[in-house]
Design a protein around this nucleic acid. Structure first.
Length: 388
RNA sequence: GCACAGGUGGCCGAGCGGUUAAUGGCAGCAGACUGUAAAUCUGCCGCUCCUUGGAGCUACGGAGGUUCGAAUCCUCCCCUGUGCA
């Protein structure tokens, strides 16, 4: 058992304030996890993520397998050490790429054949292979290999997709249990790197996690309530360390997303973390957290930032708009992040116009600060005695 | 001064008798973005009107000319680059 999950408080609405103990980080939940697909939360250095209070970030199995290669990362002591990230790490299984790379893949019961988006080379991913890669990467949490069902999907299609995901969940779990002892940080993956935090602090957890890697199962079932139920029940039987709700925010209307989350949450065990994958807008993550979602991740704050969309207390702000050309105000007057404290809208607009790399960095830092700030406030309010 | 090569919409640059308000790219303006093939993608981008659709006007250095029709052919002029004097 890799993780312990301590519930601190639960509200009537189902919202939970809890503490998730992972090998490299004790995560205060509900938590938002910035996405760092290729071993980097794009445009933001690790030390900045730390100062923003990011507790856990994502990596992607498929991308890291292709480049630089999971065996290379294993030899370098695992993903934590490779990217110099001492805190929590979760790897997605590559299941989302079954969805997003739909034109570059072929799915069979056995697994998925991908054509690399980098060089066109062919690669076969099975649940077992995804587990091998994720164990080599050694994130605190690995995800079962699933098929993210597209939207819209006919019932027969959603059933077939779910059948596949459930079979793959079983195979993922069996293979994971048989090999999880191979994580690099349990095997002392090759000495202490001079630049690593442990060079100064031998007891630093980046070198050696405390406890074991965990595996989460993923509920699918399209937008069909009974399929979702069936999915949840079967995963619970298998006994994963935590449960994710996948296949949402794939183009369906927002109220459907909400409905699916509301339906599935009560089906999941109360004593284990619940993770909704790939959401959402600022108001969505707050709403879901208050309903009892413990973990969420989304590329939106980072991607939108690079494209010039800032999330602020005043709403969405398209920083590249001409109207900000000489705006001397901070991006968000109510924000005290390092960007809002120092830079003007006019400057951020200029960086965007000029295509300067700093634009992506500053925009992303603000958006992440905004997202992480929302979760911090939500945690505080969930912890407080139930309001009168 | 002579010889070549050129002057196209904010810029670069196609076009070389009609299907051309004129291919592309850049810049500009706006929009999208939800387990990242994303510093990406989409739309608009001469001016003026009307509702989509369209109508009118102005445009390929300048002035003439040839032609039913010219950015495209001819003449002269102006300008730029290169080479030779």
């Amino acid at each position: 058992m890799g993780l312990t999950f301590d519930l601190i408080h639960t509200t009537e609405a189902g919202g939970r304030r809890a503490r998730l103990h992972l090998p490299h980080q004790t995560v205060e939940t509900p938590v938002f996890m910035p996405v760092g697909t290729a071993g980097t939360v794009k445009a933001v250095p690790q030390e900045t993520l730390e100062s923003l209070g990011a507790q856990i970030i994502l990596g992607n199995t498929y991308h890291l397998y292709l480049r630089p290669g999971h065996e290379a990362i294993r030899r370098m002591g695992g993903l934590h050490r490779f990217i110099s990230w001492p805190r929590g790490l979760l790897t997605d299984s590559g299941g989302f790429q079954v969805f997003s790379l739909s034109e570059l893949r072929k799915v069979t019961d056995e697994g998925v054949r991908f054509r690399s988006h980098l060089d066109g080379s062919s690669h076969f991913f099975t649940p077992e292979h995804s587990m091998d890669v994720q164990i080599a990467l050694g994130a605190d949490i690995a995800m079962a290999f699933d098929e993210c069902t597209e939207y819209p999907a006919e019932r027969s299609r959603a059933e077939e997709s779910l059948r596949l995901t459930m079979a793959w969940a079983r195979r993922s779990l069996d293979h994971f249990r048989a090999h999880q002892h191979e994580v690099p940080w349990l095997n002392d993956g090759g000495g202490i790197h001079p630049g690593s935090p442990s060079a100064r602090d031998p007891g630093h957890p980046i070198e050696r996690g405390i406890g074991a890697q965990s595996l989460f199962g993923i509920v699918q079932g399209g937008m069909y309530r009974d399929l979702r139920k069936q999915s949840a029940e079967r995963l619970i039987e298998m006994d994963f360390d935590g449960y994710a709700i996948g296949g949402l925010s794939v183009g369906e209307p927002r109220d459907l997303t909400l409905e699916m989350i509301a339906e599935v949450l009560p089906m999941l065990p109360k004593d284990k973390p619940r993770y909704v994958m790939g959401v959402g807008y600022p108001d969505e993550i707050e709403q879901y957290a208050r309903m009892g979602v413990d973990m969420m991740d989304c590329v939106l704050p980072t991607r939108a930032a690079r494209h010039g969309l800032l999330f602020t207390s005043e709403g969405r702000l398209t920083i590249k708009n001409k109207r900000f050309a000489e705006d001397q105000g901070p991006p968000d007057p109510a924000c005290d992040c390092m960007v809002c404290r120092r830079y003007t809208r006019a400057y951020l607009r200029h960086l965007m116009q000029a295509g300067e790399a700093l634009s992506a960095t500053l925009n992303t830092i603000h958006n992440l600060a905004y997202y992480l700030g929302i979760m911090r406030r939500v945690r505080a309010s969930l912890q407080a005695p139930t309001a009168a």
